[in-house]
Design a protein around this nucleic acid. Structure first.
Lengths: 169, 169
DNA sequence: TATTGTTATACTCTATAACTATA
DNA sequence: TATAGTTATAGAGTATAACAATA
């Protein structure tokens, strides 16, 4: 979406913050802005890899989640909780995945209120292929060094825990 | 959007990756997924702070960018390049900011093709107030330690540079 | 009464393509 | 020809509110 800038716009913003009397928070502002921008770059890479499979990131995440569930099926509300997205987002994703015959809805055996999302054979195959593509084309060449990866996992893990994402160690 | 999970879903995903023969890329996958989730949390906080001002993050970014431009005005394409967003996204944001009387469009003095975005007095005031709110309510209590902030700035800066965001430093 | 899920609706941001106007 | 910006259109994700069915 444009050629490289001659200067780092986030570093410039940090200097602007310092110059305008916000020196205290200039660094965290820069770090947070960098996280936002990095997410954007990574999401674009991921969606680029998934596009040939007819998947978006949100739908892939649901497919991947199901593929790791022992039975290959999960209740809607469980998926919503694990993916940390709104229930209507899951309804939306399942609608589209169901149209593509990658998942199907089935009734819960004992609780009539809950709907199970089940992976079809086709869905399981596609999940495997998409995962292989993401692993080799994105995660396998992230550009982060091993030490930095460990550091990111720790720092962002602490952050997510403090933000109330989860409670365990 | 739900109470804390008993376990970290990203750590679980990392273990799943390892268990299914993707040990090589399990860690970068976890780091990247953590970046995605962290961005989501931060964006929600930022939008929460900006909402009372009638601003979204995209619109705030444009306002802040203008407020740091010496003349308080920038060409559309310059704003697009610096914010690293599509030109149509700038058109969209300017449309709404203009309706709110926070910016106005003015013709470029020498190049008839170019439109300048100019901050109104009202826009400048609102930008200042919104910045103060973000600084005190988000950046000033990010939850990241000072050392981690420095590390994030460096690691993500290297990443963005390698991704082609900018060429200097 | 509380929970599960769907529907309808609305609002983001983003992007492509076609178009006008200017350089 | 190339550039700047707009318009129209489309699609994505997300969210709120109202609702039906079930527990």
């Amino acid at each position: 979406m444009g050629s490289p800038l001659p200067r780092d716009p986030i570093a410039d913003a940090q200097r602007n913050w310092e110059r305008h009397g916000w020196g205290e928070v200039a660094a965290p502002m820069a770090a947070i802005t960098a996280i936002m921008r990095t997410q954007q770059i990574l999401l674009a890479r991921i969606e680029g890899v998934l596009k040939p499979f007819g998947l978006t990131f949100a739908r892939y995440e649901l497919l991947a989640l199901l593929s790791f569930a022992r039975s290959g099926a999960l209740p809607m509300n469980k998926a919503s909780a694990l993916l940390q997205v709104h229930p209507t987002s899951v309804t939306n994703a399942v609608d589209r995945l169901e149209k593509a015959a990658l998942v199907l809805r089935s009734p819960h055996p004992t609780d009539g209120r809950t709907t199970l999302i089940e992976l079809t054979a086709e869905g399981r195959t596609l999940a495997k292929r998409a995962t292989a593509a993401l692993n080799s084309e994105v995660f396998g060449q992230s550009g982060f060094g091993d030490e930095d990866v460990e550091h990111l996992i720790r720092v962002l893990g602490d952050f997510r825990k403090a933000a109330g994402d989860f409670t365990d160690g």
